[in-house]
Simulated assay, not measured.
Amino acid sequence: MAKTRPTDASVPEFLDAATPARRVDEGHRLDAIMREVTGVDAVMWGPSIVGYGTYHYVSPSTTSRTEGDWPKVGFSPRKSAISLYGLKDLPEGAALLPRLGEYTEGAGCVYVKRLEQIDEQVLRQLIRIAFARPDDPRH
């Protein structure tokens, strides 16, 4: 994660270029939901992640400690699935996640094939939980 940083790239242009075509609509819908819930505008993180807010993370590993900045919550409208970031990182989010709807999990994200297959109210709760995390866990 440490190599991915905020950029000045245009979020709307990135979302408009998503494929397949339904990802364009889903991306704009997710952006609207996340802006509404978080109260902040999106920033592109690297070439493909739309992020909201920032927090400083420190890995728990004692052998290969890494740290850096990462969006509190974000997504990427990828071809095969929408990747959602930050929703399962905190215990409250992990506990609520099973109520989201149809999804699969990766190491740090949640994959959704279609936005209509998930419960928008649960998604909004998950976004609120993720966005409420402290900016710097050391404080």
Rank of each mutant, 00 (worst) to 15 (best):
P134Y: 13
L126I: 06
A95L: 03
E102T: 06
I118M: 00
D69Y: 12
L97T: 03
R35N: 06
T62D: 10
F75N: 03
V122Q: 11
A21V: 10
D8Y: 06
V110I: 05
D8V: 14
P98G: 05
K3M: 15
P47I: 13
M34S: 06
Y85K: 00
M1N: 06
P91V: 09
E67G: 12
G51P: 08
D25L: 01
L90N: 14
H56A: 05
L87Y: 06
D8S: 15
R114F: 04
P6S: 07
E105C: 10
M1Q: 02
R128I: 13
L30S: 14
R133W: 11
T104F: 11
A32D: 14
Y111W: 14
A42Q: 14
G46E: 09
G93Y: 04
C109E: 09
R133G: 11
A94R: 04
I82Q: 00
D119I: 01
K113T: 03
P134E: 15
H28R: 08
G86H: 03
V24S: 02
M1E: 05
P60T: 15
D31N: 14
I33C: 07
S80E: 09
R22E: 11
T19Y: 10
R5Q: 15
L84N: 10
P91E: 15
S59G: 07
V50C: 07
S64T: 09
M1V: 06
S80M: 06
V43H: 03
G46N: 15
R133I: 09
L15D: 01
G51K: 10
A32E: 13
T54G: 02
D16R: 13
T66K: 12
V40P: 03
G68W: 02
V110F: 02
E92N: 02
E36D: 13
T62R: 11
D25F: 01
D119W: 01
T19N: 13
C109F: 08
Y85E: 02
G46T: 11
M34W: 08
A107F: 04
P134K: 13
I127E: 03
H28P: 01
D16W: 06
L115W: 01
V110G: 00
Q125G: 11
M34H: 10
P98T: 06
T19K: 14
K113V: 04
V43T: 11
A94H: 02
T63G: 14
W45G: 05
E116T: 03
D31T: 09
F14C: 01
T19W: 07
R128D: 14
T104G: 15
D89M: 10
R138G: 00
I49F: 14
D69H: 12
V73I: 02
E36R: 12
K72S: 06
L126Q: 11
C109S: 10
G108R: 05
R99G: 00
A94Y: 04
K88Y: 08
E13P: 00
T38D: 08
H56E: 09
T19E: 15
G68D: 08
T63V: 10
E67N: 12
G86Q: 07
L123I: 09
V37T: 12
G106K: 13
D8T: 15
A17M: 02
T62P: 05
D25G: 01
H56C: 05
L90I: 14
K113E: 14
V122R: 10
